[in-house]
Amino acid sequence: MSNVLVLVDHTGGKVRKTTAELLTIARRLGEPVAVYIGEGVQDALPALGQYGATKVIALTDPELSQYLVAPKAEALQQVAAKIEPSAILISSNAEGKEIAARLAVKLDSGLITDAVDVQAGDSGPVTTQSVFAGNYSVQAKVTHGTPIITVKPNAATPEAAETSPEVEEFDVTISDAAKTARITESKPREATGRPELTEAAIIVSGGRGTGGDFAPIEAFADSLGAAVGASRAAVDSGWYPHAYQVGQTGKTVSPQLYIAAGISGAIQHRAGMQTSKTIIAINKDEEAPIFELVDFGVVGDLHKVLPATTTEVNNRKS
């Protein structure tokens, strides 16, 4: 069977859920070979084995993390030359997409980004993408070279398939040209304790209608164990950090439940949440376009509706 490369998405050895999804998808296409860049591969091993990695290739050169993506793309090219994979799967985040872009040029191969599903086809993987603000669903395939596919979070339900993969250390050669853009300072963001936006099952988002007070949004989110999101109007006003923006220039999310409070539902916002399974809106304007999307809507003041709902949800839980 052919090898399918999966670039492991992790923070210091803690494997992210998207990697389990990628490994699950890789098993549909061939034998998953995980590529792990950075320190902590031993910590990651159990999770990689749980989802069926047949082998783990570890790249531990510290220079891979010091610079931006160029050295990582070079490393993957070298791994690909050795393994000759039938496809390469990478998480669809900013870094993943840039690595994939460089790799496509290096390998003279077709690239598909932001897949929401990948299945095996007669002539290689067939991807599904959601385009034009989620108004169209597009099926595509790579017709030249090694298919390189970046996959969005929640594109597959992780299915365990226990293996005990061996770790193979792999020495890479990084060119000087790849070391020209460097990270000179990094300020980590404080952890919120809430689920990650793109991976969350439930998201509660606030917009300009919050008037700047996200406390009721956060309290409601916590009662549901949800992540918090924001519209661009809220982010631009400085009420919530950009990392939480949902929409065209923020995160695209597709949770089981999306709750929009005080958000009008502009096309650019819809682009980021339209494919959510269930949508709820709370907005005081019954004409707000967000109501065109909802499964359930409340016309009312979020400052009244949300706290009352939060209290009731918390009561039911205890």
Binding site: G110, S130, G134, N135, S137, A140, K141, V142, H144, D295
Partner: peptide, 14 residues
Amino acid sequence: AFTEVTEVTARPPR
């Protein structure tokens, strides 16, 4: 082109 779109489907209205 190195990629080919094989099918386009308009999303059914909610």
